[in-house]
């Protein structure tokens, strides 16, 4: 819609052209074509988002206000055309009251946020030195190290999680190695633990942390560190006073890129976690496919979206304030 409006205003410009000398007219047309071209370039991604994000979101929103019913799809229609020619809009808020009323869902939300938060923290603690090392590596090495970070993306995400199942299993290589070294005497339960979930999360999302950090650290002007040293600041202190504050944007971006998908993550807790690993992604899955309760699953998804959008907005506001100050 917005895209269409943009295109239409572009057309409006064309109408208002007064026609002086031929060359000037040609110039104007070229300028208008340029403006139209720019709008088209902007319109394209917006159109894509409208079709593949906004429309599905509206469908989910609709289902969230619907009610369960034995049919296909298993929900009541929200809008009904009654026999006496009345368009009836029926919104069930019961799904939301149910979601907020049940402690299981609350626990799932809290647990998801906690797992995602801790995973993000570890990804940051591991990712920052990695990104720093890559950014400071000599030219030829930098490309190789960079490639190594991106390399896991060449394999399917699912396959890599399955690989971890093999590695962490009772007879897997990690247990074998620990026994070989005499650290343990019988295999330990690694799979289906919270540890495995954290491991999988940090492993899977680490590249998303490293890439924005790398670009922020790489941009940092090294003469600033020289200036700090020149003014009597030791290197370790200069890291906290100069490097860290000036790469904050990269830290924010990396944390968002890890935290947001981690909150709703389904595959990792399902495959690596135990039966008691309660995460919201799994709960939504169970409601949707197990209970065939689409409205409650949709309501959960909406609540999750609102929470995450709140986080993003909060972070953006903090950043905007930092920029002004």
């Amino acid at each position: 819609m917005a895209a269409l409006a943009l295109l239409l205003t572009g057309g409006g410009d064309a109408v208002s052209v007064s026609a002086p000398a031929g060359t000037r007219l040609a110039g104007r047309f070229a300028a208008i074509r340029g403006a139209l071209g720019r709008r088209a370039v902007i319109a394209l991604p917006y159109a894509w988002l409208a079709v593949f994000f906004l429309v599905p979101f509206l469908i989910v929103l609709k289902i969230a206000f619907s009610n369960i019913q034995l049919s296909m799809p298993p929900v009541e229609p929200v809008m009904v055309w009654t026999a006496d020619h009345v368009l009836q809009l029926r919104l069930h808020f019961s799904n939301f009251t149910f979601v907020f009323g049940d402690e299981l869902y609350l626990a799932a939300f809290v647990n998801s946020l906690q797992v995602a938060g801790v995973s993000t923290l570890f990804a940051l603690l591991i990712g920052y030195p990695m990104a720093y090392g890559i950014a400071r590596a000599p030219g030829a090495w930098r490309n190789i190290l960079f490639l190594l970070v991106v390399l896991p993306f060449f394999t399917s995400f699912l396959l890599r999680v399955y690989a971890w199942m093999g590695l962490l299993g009772r007879s897997g290589p990690i247990n074998a190695l620990l026994m070989q070294l005499g650290i343990i005497h019988e295999p330990v339960q690694l799979l289906q633990t919270d540890f495995a979930v954290y491991l999988g999360m940090v492993y899977s999302y680490l590249p998303f942390m490293v890439l924005p950090l790398y670009s922020a650290i790489e941009k940092l002007d090294l003469t600033l560190l020289e200036a700090a040293a020149d003014l009597g600041c030791r290197p370790a202190k200069a890291f906290f006073m100069i490097t860290l504050p000036l790469t904050k944007e990269g830290i924010f971006a990396g944390c968002l890129l890890v935290f947001i998908p981690a909150v709703g993550e389904y595959v990792i807790p399902a495959l690596l976690g135990g039966p008691d690993t309660l995460m919201i992604g799994r709960v939504v899955w169970d409601e949707f496919f197990g209970n065939r309760d689409w409205p409650v699953a949709s309501a959960l998804a909406i609540v999750l979206l609102v929470i995450l959008a709140g986080f993003v907005l909060l972070l953006q506001r903090v950043q905007a304030q930092e920029g002004e100050a």
């Binding site: 002007d221 200036a227 003014l231 600041c233």
Partner: peptide, 27 residues
Amino acid sequence: PYERPVNMMFQSYALFPHMTVAQNVAF
């Protein structure tokens, strides 16, 4: 460098962009 009784004015000035003028001078 951090122990030399020498200070430098850099060609690019190398002012700390996240600090105010007073903080830069006080650094």
